[in-house]
Design a protein around this nucleic acid. Structure first.
Length: 272
DNA sequence: AAGTTGACCTGAGGGC
DNA sequence: TGCCCTCAGGTCAACT
């Protein structure tokens, strides 16, 4: 589920609660996520203060006085701030309990268990974080960068965009939306797209991600902000999930290409 | 090296 | 109502 805008929305929602707070406890109800939650983590974390809350791609990095937590929401994850009186549901693997009388906690919900809670002394050197490509909403990302990385490659441009080692934080929704915006067919070989079109694609990615962020992300099914509200960007989706519906630009029906895992949605007329 | 496929999981929705 | 099938926002590991 959560791509860059959803993870960033989550980060912003958590900041007022977590920044400067001390971790009183970690309650693990289900350690079997994508990687097991380390067994000694609870003891390790108690009493440590949160000094920073950052995002890298789709990863949240909770920096502590010493070390950091790395959290990934997988396909179906979300983090919510709840009081101690709220009973945990069956798909809620852990709570990060904040120190202080009310017993406020950050509760992970993750039905498919593709998420992760890991610990690292040096998160930026962690094998999951270090190889990530540039942040699309920061300096250093533009059409020239994409064009260079795509040189000579036959992989479909949609799949190149999904590779976090090329550019961080892009998932299937925003890859499809940006390709529509830029008028590029999702199946086109990445190495056969010119510099000018990569410039348009980089601009489209930045625009789509920024607009989604403003809307609080996209909620198709599972995603909730840290206060429980949904995102609203699904109302602005142009092609994703709109198979058979008219292209907003030319009214030709949107095509869905499944075959091989994740679907591509595109306008067969506007996108080449 | 680059590209493709399978694997990890649960839950929802459609067809019969 | 219920069963079976397909599909889903991610991404690593193991293949070719």
């Amino acid at each position: 589920m959560p791509e860059l805008p959803e993870v960033e929305t989550t980060r912003r929602g958590l900041i007022p609660w977590m920044l400067g707070a001390t971790l009183a406890d970690l309650i693990v109800r289900e350690p079997r996520l994508r990687w097991p939650i380390p067994t000694d983590l609870t003891v390790l974390l108690r009493g440590r203060m949160v000094t920073d809350l950052a995002r890298r791609g789709k990863y949240l990095i909770v920096s502590l006085e010493k070390g950091a937590l790395i959290i990934h929401l997988g396909m179906s994850g979300s983090l919510r701030v709840v009081g101690p009186e709220v009973p945990p549901g069956p798909s809620e693997p852990f709570d990060l309990v904040l120190a202080g009388e009310p017993g406020v906690r950050v509760r992970m919900r993750d039905p498919r268990r593709f998420g992760a809670l890991l610990y690292s002394e040096d998160p930026l050197s962690h094998p999951l974080i270090a190889p990530l490509g540039p942040e699309p909403l920061e300096a250093g990302f533009d059409g020239t960068y994409l064009h260079t990385r795509a040189h000579g490659r036959t992989i479909a441009i949609r799949d190149l965009l999904l590779n976090g080692h090329i550019v961080a934080g892009i998932g299937n929704i925003y890859a499809n939306e940006a390709l529509f915006e830029a008028g590029i067919h999702p199946g086109r070989a990445a190495g056969r797209i010119g510099a000018d079109r990569y410039a348009a694609l980089a601009r489209a990615l930045i625009a789509v991600l920024s607009q989604a962020l403003e809307a609080g992300g996209t909620t198709l099914k599972d995603f909730a902000r840290s206060d429980g509200r949904p995102g609203y960007f699904q109302q602005q989706l142009q092609v994703y999930g709109r198979e058979g519906k008219p292209c907003p630009r030319c009214a030709v029906p949107i095509t869905r290409l499944s075959g091989g895992g994740r679907s591509s949605y595109y306008c067969p007329r506007c996108q080449r």
